[in-house]
């Protein structure tokens, strides 16, 4: 083992330990704000893994999109629905958790035996490294052109769909009374809507 492999192995182990610990924290901690920040740590560790796998472009995309956009979006979501409520305990909740843990451990055992037993066709070619971004661009505009364009359409649909779902669909009455009439040039026409009844049980 030369020096580069040793450095790679040590950084892999450090990143793996941080990632598993942070992922367990995301799932198990009771404060959801801590969970969101630990999720950012998981994303950063995965970006480090991508750098270890000779994929600098995707690592940069991971940091930009996941840490910069998705994690911030989740934090905003937490703060928008931040309601300190204690969930009513469900009967026999530990049974479900134990069953789920057993299923997850079993799934991990199954996957790991599959991983270790399969003879992988390891390619001996050198990774192309920094040329990867050129290669990704060629793939995007030749053989993966249709999925690329569909992804852009899907992002537009998600943008519009998220706005339609999340925008406030009704105005309270006192706010409607106070609003002057000339201000509706900049507002979208909104219809009043009934809250779903039966939510208070």
């Amino acid at each position: 083992m030369n020096l580069a492999e040793g450095v790679q192995l040590v950084s892999f182990l450090v990143l793996a330990a941080m990632m598993i610990g942070a992922a367990l924290g995301v799932v198990l901690l009771s404060n959801i704000v801590y969970s969101a920040f630990l999720l950012g740590l998981v994303f950063v560790c995965i970006a480090g893994m991508y750098i270890l796998l000779n994929a600098g472009f995707v690592a940069a995309a991971q940091v930009l999109i996941y840490v910069g956009a998705v994690n911030v979006l989740i934090l905003f979501g937490i703060m928008l629905v931040n309601k300190r409520q204690d969930f009513t305990p469900v009967k026999n909740a530990w049974l479900g958790k134990a069953a789920t843990a057993a299923v997850c451990v079993g799934l991990f055992a199954l996957l790991s035996t599959m991983i270790l037993a399969t003879p992988w066709a390891i390619s001996g070619a050198m990774p192309i490294g920094d040329e990867a971004i050129v290669e990704i661009g060629k793939h995007f505009f030749s053989d993966y052109l249709l999925p690329f364009e569909l992804a852009s359409v899907l992002l537009l649909m998600a943008l519009i769909g998220a706005i339609v779902l999340a925008r406030r669909d009704f105005l309270p009455d006192e706010l409607l009374d106070r609003l002057p009439e000339q201000s509706d040039a900049l507002t979208l026409p909104e219809r009043p809507r009934e809250l779903i009844s039966g939510s208070k049980k």
């Binding site: 995707v58 995309a61 999109i65 998705v70 990704i136 793939h139 899907l154 992002l155 998220a162």
Partner: peptide, 20 residues
């Protein structure tokens, strides 16, 4: 890597719609 980029973009859309 191309597939990973696609998955990242789909995951961003999923997070936005899910939070909405």
């Amino acid at each position: 890597q191309v597939f990973a980029v696609f998955v990242i973009s789909i995951a961003a859309a999923e997070a936005a719609v899910g939070l909405a």
